[in-house]
Design a protein around this nucleic acid. Sequence first.
DNA 1: GGATAATAGCTGCCAAAGCAGTAACTGTAT
DNA 2: ATACAGTTACTGCTTTGGCAGCTATTATCC
Lengths: 169, 169
Amino acid sequence: MSKQHYHASTYRAQSSVGYLIKRAHSMMLDVLEQVFAEQGFTYIQYVILAGLRDGIAVNPTDICRQFRHDSGALTRVIDQLEERGLLERVRRDRDRRKVELQLTEPGRAKVESLIPLVVEKLNLALVDFSSEEVQEFLRLLLKLNARMESTLDAKPGTGDAKAATGTEN
Amino acid sequence: MSKQHYHASTYRAQSSVGYLIKRAHSMMLDVLEQVFAEQGFTYIQYVILAGLRDGIAVNPTDICRQFRHDSGALTRVIDQLEERGLLERVRRDRDRRKVELQLTEPGRAKVESLIPLVVEKLNLALVDFSSEEVQEFLRLLLKLNARMESTLDAKPGTGDAKAATGTEN
DNA sequence: GGATAATAGCTGCCAAAGCAGTAACTGTAT
DNA sequence: ATACAGTTACTGCTTTGGCAGCTATTATCC
């Protein structure tokens, strides 16, 4: 049986990892959205560009899954970025349904110019942390995410466990 | 001097606390929204009710700040919850601008019935964690949040140090 | 090989979040 | 007392996200 870290009878949001993560996420957004706004970007626009830069997600579908964004809404954001000449849609011959997004040179340059601003804010948030604490923090976050990823993959539908065989490109 | 945990030249999203927290938050949402939907609630509705239950935020303004929700949008969510008889708006005499939100008995009962479902999902996500790891995780999250909270409070405005006093009059 | 299902991306519609402006109330300074 | 600025909650308008449906392409099954 799984460890019972929380119990319904004693649960309080203040010490819930869910609440604390939500709050951390909220405040990160507060800080970064302001930074991006000054550079003429929205948060989701940066997320897409940075995701491309670091190879996290190159197809619209990947981006939807990785960043939990709606497919329809994403199409329109990609339209904006393409109109601004920051990325291009490329059709691959091996699977002509898929669109591969590629940073243009201006696009890459723009992302690179945003990175130091993000790094600055991250370091500011972690100013009280030792190197060991940051490493441990990353390890625990990765562990949590790996677990949730596998449980979400296991039951993509409304509860029935369907076999999720590897279907990568 | 602040520690430089990240450097622009080597930064990759994959090992960024920002990205990992965003991802953790996303997946938590995936899991919990489904749970709440089955009970006839949205995520934000639960958040408000749970915030009231645990005394995190009792005024609309508090809720906006705590959960980073828009003031106008919040008014309408509170309307829904009030119409369903789950909470009440109470005007206090000491400051008649403020509205104090109070759970009704049905409201309290409903939140309490949701708690075990949340606890179950949290425990599932933390199934690989030892008690020590959970404690350390909570400590680090609290530390991060405390820091970000203070920096956000310090500069509530746009961050520009100089006011535009030069050109006028 | 042809019918069927599954996947990827896009479009239209609707609900919700974000933004700006307003009214009621409070605190402060003159 | 009065004027002024700051808070708090709310209301209209705009933008965005979420959902369902659609087309094109690929995979699967007989």
